[in-house]
């Protein structure tokens, strides 16, 4: 007779870790099983980035602006991932009947959301890399590689703050019901505008740029451009050091706020009996 093995019950960090990978797993496996996404997810964003490059060419812009557009275009992949694969995801999961399973499981909701982000990173990373590589080669963009470590640190901090914000949005979008779709749409072009995805954010003036700094990509993108391009520092909004500090603080605030908001929303949803209500 085979011996019955006792399954060790996960708690604390172990539970968080396992939940995160459990949610990331289908997304990662999905990308390897059905590979046609690579074509659709890279060609589509490439076209809008290329269009903006040609606008700069049409008005005889200096070459570094082409680089600004390419880096901004690559970062749109992360913003879209946060909006559509994280913020709106709980609403869609509710629609498909998965949300009740998440709520019933012992796994923390933040781990589930982080799993979505980690799982989506394969696709998002490919999309961003494709824009960066193809456009850099196509338009002969030159980068300076002075402080690669600092660049990596800024990118990591930006992602931490951005995905923290995404988790916070998930609770807001879930509460907004059918309007979640409109909200995600609403946060595309207006955010590309105020965060300076295609031009230095400084061009919008001090107050708009300050207001837009709530979105972590604004400062992250500005700092990365300052490090990547020779003319970057002269077009930067704040110093790289200040922007890095603000990004670190934002990351902590957004992650903490997401934790509180998700708990509150779940509590309220349970109390009102509307957490898994579906309306088409």
């Amino acid at each position: 007779m085979s011996e019955i093995r006792e399954v060790e019950k996960a708690r604390g960090f172990s539970l968080f870790w396992r939940t995160m990978w459990a949610r990331a797993y289908p997304r990662i496996i999905g990308t390897t099983r059905e590979k046609s996404w690579a074509f659709f997810d890279t060609i589509l964003p490439l076209m809008s980035t290329v269009s903006y490059v040609f606008v700069y060419r049409a008005i005889n812009a200096p070459e570094e602006y082409i680089g600004f557009v390419v880096v901004g275009g690559a970062m749109t992949a992360f913003w879209l991932n946060v909006l559509w694969s994280m913020a709106s995801q709980l609403y869609w999961d509710k629609d498909m009947g998965n949300l009740e399973l998440y709520v019933l499981s012992p796994g923390p909701m933040m781990a589930i959301l982080l799993g979505m982000a980690v799982g989506g990173l394969v696709m998002t990373g490919t999309r961003a890399a494709a824009i960066l590589i193809v456009c850099s080669l196509l338009f002969r963009v030159t980068y300076q590689t002075g402080s690669l470590l600092l660049l990596l640190a800024i990118f990591t901090l930006t992602m931490a703050a951005l995905y923290g914000m995404g988790m916070m949005f998930a609770s807001v979008f879930l509460a907004s019901g059918r309007e979640a779709w409109h909200l995600s749409n609403l946060l595309q072009e207006p955010i590309y505008l105020v965060s300076g995805f295609y031009f230095p954010v400084r061009a919008l003036g001090f107050w708009v740029a300050t207001f837009a700094s709530v979105i972590p990509l604004t400062l992250g993108l500005d700092a990365m451009r300052q490090l990547l391009f020779a003319g970057g520092p002269s077009l930067g909004f704040l110093s790289v050091r200040t922007e890095t500090g603000i990004l670190a603080v934002s990351a902590v605030i957004f992650i903490a706020a997401a934790h509180v908001m998700l708990r509150k929303l779940e509590e309220k949803g349970r109390r009102d009996g509307r957490l898994i209500e579906r309306r088409r």
């Binding site: 606008v55 700069y56 008005i59 602006y65 749409n185 072009e189 207006p190 505008l193 919008l204």
Partner: peptide, 20 residues
């Protein structure tokens, strides 16, 4: 939603143009 998206998308081009 119906107004913000188109206005924002055209303003991106306006700012790009104005900067240069």
């Amino acid at each position: 939603y119906s107004l913000a998206r188109p206005i924002a998308s055209v303003l991106i081009l306006v700012v790009m143009y104005a900067v240069i």
